[in-house]
Design a protein around this nucleic acid. Structure first.
Length: 162
DNA sequence: GCCAACGTTGGC
DNA sequence: GCCAACGTTGGC
């Protein structure tokens, strides 16, 4: 039986991979490699195709939620962990035990205006978001549906005003 | 560039 | 199993 759609937030530093980079990918789809945190990996294992993803630019000026994507695969082995040349190489990983996994992500939309982090801190509906918690570092986070909906609404507010 | 928060490692 | 040391993340 299909489970309810879930919602996630995934961080990327735009200097290494931005949402514009995602838009330029073939089929506007990419594999989300390089995650080396167990909690984040476990979240990716929970993902199912069609789940909603908020794309977040970290270490940006300002940091911001910049658009949405959707999960396009279930989790599979992240082979970059086995590549000594790769920046995210993990000597403990092997073909038999890859340890690290990734999913494919497909672009849905780039917001007309990014939603900057300082602005989000002022939104009551988001006050319990993991992203806004002090010291929050997790690069893959679970997002509650009301929070996801509130963000989409913010992203599209004022569009008709031009 | 600073530093708080957090995860991981390794000595004991 | 504790915890100090260390490395990393990421906002500011």
């Amino acid at each position: 039986m299909p489970r309810l759609k879930k919602y996630w937030l995934m961080k990327s530093e735009p200097e290494s991979f931005s949402i514009q980079d995602l838009a330029a990918c073939p089929k506007q789809t990419t594999c989300w490699d390089g995650v080396r945190n167990y909690q984040a990996r476990n979240f990716m294992r929970e993902m199912q195709p069609g789940d909603g993803v908020l794309f977040y630019h970290s270490s940006a000026d300002p940091p911001a939620v910049v658009g949405t994507a959707e999960v396009a695969s279930t989790a599979y082995a992240d082979s970059t962990a086995c590549d000594p040349q790769d920046h995210h190489y993990d000597p403990k990983a092997s073909a038999e035990n890859p340890i690290w996994e990734m999913v494919d992500i497909k672009l849905v939309e780039i917001f007309p205006q990014p939603l900057p982090l300082p602005m989000l801190r002022g939104i009551a509906a988001l006050k319990d978001m993991e992203l806004l918690r002090k010291g929050s570092r997790l690069s893959v986070q679970l997002v509650r549906k009301p929070e996801y909906d509130a963000l989409l609404k913010l992203a599209h507010a004022g569009r008709k005003r031009k």
